[in-house]
């Protein structure tokens, strides 16, 4: 099948996934639609240079990631990230999890998750997963998505958002702690 048809087929079948991926990070459904539209156009225009170096899925997502980063940059000029979620800055997301000596409180000590890989195949799991991501404070979520969904290095994120590296590590730690806890309680609940 010619490459432009493959791209069309992929975007046709996975459009909803692409929009959700963008919307998770942009928190703006209309903007997410626009970004996916632009991604499709860019993918079609670049089809000639794609040349099967990677799968169509990887190729389309790599374009989508660049478009999301561009959209985040444009919007940052309107809403500086430093103003997002400043009120929850002091909440370290860990209260109650550890005892006074810094060891797991008995009721919060992590237990083995049953068959986590099987969960990935379940649509319901992803709904819970996304709800948990949405639950994170906006600033925390922004940094976490840049790291895990867009795959940026910490140094790039720090530079982009003008925050110091150690702060970035703290934010990522809180995001993982919060996401793990939410999934533990709502999906893997024992």
């Amino acid at each position: 099948m010619p490459i432009d048809e493959q791209i069309h087929e992929f975007v046709g079948a996975r459009r909803a996934d692409l929009v959700r991926f963008a919307a998770l990070q942009l928190r703006d459904p209309a903007l997410a639609e626009d970004v996916v539209q632009e991604t499709l156009i860019a993918a079609m225009q670049g089809a000639a240079e794609f040349g099967h170096r990677s799968s169509v899925k990887t190729w389309v997502y790599s374009i989508l990631k660049r478009k999301v980063i561009d959209a985040l940059r444009t919007r940052r000029q309107e809403v500086p990230v430093s103003q997002l979620g400043a009120a929850v800055e002091d909440d370290d997301g860990c209260e109650g999890l550890f005892d006074q000596r810094g060891f797991w409180a008995t009721e919060h000590r992590p237990h083995r998750w049953a068959d986590p890989e099987d969960s990935l195949e379940q649509q319901q799991f992803w709904q819970v997963f996304e709800a948990c991501l949405d639950h994170l404070p906006e600033r925390t979520s922004r940094v976490f998505m840049m790291r895990e969904l867009l795959g940026l290095e910490v140094s790039e994120i720090c530079q982009e958002l003008a925050i110091v590296t150690s702060n970035c590590w703290v934010i990522l730690h809180r995001a993982r702690m919060g996401l793990r806890r939410c999934l533990d309680e709502t999906w893997f609940a024992r």
Partner: peptide
């Protein structure tokens, strides 16, 4: 697992 799940989501 969280990292693996997110990366699989990201294409």
């Amino acid at each position: 697992f969280l990292r693996m799940a997110l990366r699989s989501r990201a294409g």
